[in-house]
Amino acid sequence: MSRGRIRTSGREAYALPAYAAFAALTLLTVLLCVSAGSVSIPPAQTLQVLRDALAGRPAPATAAASILLSSRLPRVLCVALTGAALSVGGAAMQGLLKNPLADGSTLGVSSGASLGAVLAIAFGIQIPGLPFAGTMVMAIMFAFGSLLLILTLAWRLDCTLSTNTIILIGVIFTMFVNSVLSLVITFASDRLRSITFWTMGSLSGSSYPNALVLLGALAVCGGVILAHARELNAFAIGEDNARSVGVDVRRVRLTILIAVSALTGVCVSIGGSIAFVGLVTPHVVRMVTGPNHRRLLPASLFGGAVFLMLCDLAARVVLRPVQLPIGVVTSLIGAVVFVLIFFRTRRQAP
């Protein structure tokens, strides 16, 4: 055995310049997405309007300023934050469950949130003075209720709350909720268009308050997830190994599950079901960063934001003036990308 002196690479996380590059790329994508659309606005004019708005100066009474500030900017902000949240949640779930096919919807929390929102739409549940809040509150309540139910059932079956049990219960719960969703849709035919559009995912009606809610959820839950990067590395190697190296397996697992569920619930409540972002983005990012979560999580955060903003741009401009639901675009792109990744990985498998 060699006993030669070796150097180890102690730095595992990204340095500040890498974060600056990620932020610059994200801001450039924001600029592109607020400028482009059915009405194109020159980037210089976009920058001027945004500068005035940030400085607190009154917006000029032009159509471009109105489109930018009232419609596109809140939408693009919500899209970016949703993409970041779904992507970082997906990366965390893939590490926690050591399963590359996991994402925020694996637990069934996404389906639970969808059921809450669909019930709110079908039965016209609203909170006076707060439009959309009824759907949001119901989605978040059902997301947490679903998590509670899934964990309770998993606990009753297996008090160690093993990963396999949680996945199994999540899959069964998703199938059950999907059948209930179909039942509700059958009996709510008068609101079918609204429900269907929502279940396909759409952020077309997003507002600044929506963006603030998403930002708050991402700051808290995303922060919790990022703070557990080393523990997620240990889980990604194996749950027994995580326990052996000293990770508080049960506490970390519950913390990550709750954080991802809250993020998923908030995203579903605002944008509906947007598939594949949490599944595909971490896969693509992992090819560049490797599996180390100290790099994978922040890169997924920015990568998810950029990916979803570009998907939303495609949804707005490809068939203009018709706008596609963003979930349709992510599913079309995501499915193709995922199949390509799958074949590439299978070919490279040792």
Binding site: T8, S9, E12, G95, K98, N99, P100, R230, N233, A234, A236, I237, G238, N241, V245, G246, V247, R286, G290, P291, N292
Partner: peptide, 15 residues
Amino acid sequence: GYSFTVEQVVRLGRY
């Protein structure tokens, strides 16, 4: 499950 390097796995021992 994932393509960690030898050093990354060994380093986790210091957790």
